[in-house]
Design a binder for these strands. Structure first.
Lengths: 335, 335
DNA sequence: AACGATTTCGCAAACGTTTGCGCTTGAAAA
DNA sequence: TTTTCAAGCGCAAACGTTTGCGAAATCGTT
């Protein structure tokens, strides 16, 4: 840190007290216009800037919010970050970012770090592997404002920002059914994740609604490009009996499309594919991916909006809100 | 911020002085084993955690580093962030992230904010539009440790982390030439950006090396997907006279491929295309994109490594380093 | 028994702010 | 001339730490 000029220095060179400088700089009425101008001009001249650290300590408020996110290199999550940064920038808050890399231990460390830094609130999307929420619970009990987004924790009452994942899964699956699919493979996320369960439940719901029998073997835990690759042989065996695929995210949907094409299946004629996310890849793959749109940027903004709303009404009387974004199906060529 | 327990509270309930608590907690030899244990146990019990803000103020060191980045929703940049976060996490630093959104004004604000927050150092990649570096110069003169990465500033002496963009451009272009191309279109970034100029110069270099005449009309400022779209008609006119394209980044290369395919050109038979970046899209587009690999994660790590090295050797005697990553050509199907 | 040397701890200043309170002024009111 | 009062300013505590220095207590040594 630098040899920055402080309020003390100004006081000394101008021959006034520290408190006078402080008050003058914030237009306190106790200070005469002449000394106020003197001080303000001088401060400007030497480019005085208050020490935010000292301010935070004094005010017991850091104007900083902490973010715990599973992955940064991820279109949805990076969009979320972008939305968060945009709004908090406007509102005078800064973001400290921590990446859990889908690792529960690192997630816990991150939480502790952020608390240690006395952030005013925390935004978090859980890692895939997190099953123990005790640290979050403790933070919650200590009155730490938290907003969960996307990958939320059901057992903790907080503000939340989510998609209607169940409806998304239902929508995607129903679309496939309406297009004539009867044997739909679901590439699912881990059931540890609520969003994974919800999207799967949406899939099941759609089948039920249309009186299509559920086949357990058509639900496969497979939520990354790599996993598609390792499960390749098993997938090959499944292909002859399916006419549709609903993948829990775009990248596995796309990996699936690539496998299908390699095996000579025509999309969408032989097998139809729907993804989830609507990232930039969706329009690059051929055929272009029909998928559920997920508004990361907006969800990011909404998360900090909720957080700030709570920070600004410390009365704590507002009951917890859950903001749910409706899914929309982007119809393209893959289904 | 919360009603967290402080060192003072511990002192009071245990009937010792504040300084004793402080020393006990950090195993200062002056404190007897018995009181040390007493204090440490109690601290653990009530889950005491030091106030980082107070520490930073006292130590004049925040263990925080600031990041100014043009865009977060961008594969290369998010990879950079990820690498930065990983290493700084390990080294006990936190990252405050600011997005300039390619806006010079916002970039300046971000810089000021970070300085106000007394970050220990700053990592920055310039916005596309930045032509005035005075604020950075001032920060530099005040002794603020800075590392520029990717989009660096030539006129300021700092540590730098870059790719050999010229060599990358040369490599890409030469590859096209060796494949038989004679009329290569270059979709270029703004010449304001050094990386834009360098990649273009690499293109020119390769042409010269192979005695191919340079045609100014084959160098087009066009570095986004959107710009490809707006320049569509102009591009159509150009197509009959070209047999190769070197695009300054993957997304414009891909947009170009899509246009070419729509117009009935076969890739790579009729026109070959090379991109720059090697993001995930490169393997999704068809034909898969031949492109220059850009190691964002590694460049991010290297940037904080350089920064920390400087922070840990405040002697300031080390001369500024420029770490340059060699480009490699990922050969796929588009060329 | 007296002394010096340790051991063990507390005081207080400092980091850079804000802010309640009290102290000077000078002028207006009595 | 004295009293009153507001205007204008400074003192000092506080936010939560660390740390140099001094002081008290304990101990061993003659």
């Amino acid at each position: 840190m630098q040899n920055k000029v402080t309020i003390k220095d100004i006081a000394k060179t101008l021959g006034v007290s520290i408190s006078t400088v402080s008050r003058a700089l914030k237009d306190h009425p106790d200070i005469s216009e002449s000394t106020r101008n003197l001080i303000k001009n001088f401060a400007q001249e030497i480019n005085y800037r208050p020490n935010v650290l000292a301010l935070s300590l004094r005010r017991q408020k850091s104007n900083t919010i902490g973010l715990i996110i599973p992955e940064i290199v991820h279109h949805f999550f990076s969009s979320v970050i972008s939305g968060m940064e945009d709004l908090s920038y406007r509102e005078g808050y800064n973001i400290i970012i921590c990446q859990s890399t889908e690792n529960q231990f690192r997630e816990a460390t991150a939480l502790q770090t952020l608390i240690d830094h006395r952030v005013d609130g925390i935004l978090v999307s859980l890692s895939k592997s997190t099953q123990n929420f005790s640290q979050f619970k403790k933070a919650q009990e200590e009155g730490f404002p938290m907003v969960f987004f996307d990958r939320i924790c059901e057992s903790i009452e907080t503000d939340r920002v989510v998609m209607d994942d169940l409806e998304g899964g239902r929508l995607a699956t129903e679309y496939l059914i309406n297009k004539g699919c009867q044997n739909i493979l679901h590439l699912a996320a881990s059931p540890i994740l609520l969003i994974g369960r919800n999207r799967r439940d949406g899939y099941l719901q759609a089948l039920k609604d249309h009186n299509i029998p559920i086949k357990e073997e058509l639900i496969l835990k497979c939520d990354t490009q790599e996993e598609v690759s390792t499960l390749r042989n098993h997938l090959y065996e499944l292909l002859p009996q399916i006419d549709g695929v609903f993948a829990v995210n775009d990248s596995t949907a796309i990996a699936m499309i690539q496998i299908l094409k390699k095996k000579g299946y025509r999309i969408p004629q032989d097998i139809k594919v729907v993804g989830f996310g609507d990232g930039p890849n969706a329009t690059i793959v051929e055929p272009a991916l029909t998928t559920i749109e997920q508004k990361g940027y907006d969800m990011g903004r909404e998360s900090v909006r909720l957080l700030l709303q709570r920070l600004n009404n410390p009365s704590a009387s507002i009951s917890y809100q859950t903001r749910v974004f409706p899914p929309t199906l982007k119809i393209r060529e893959s289904a």
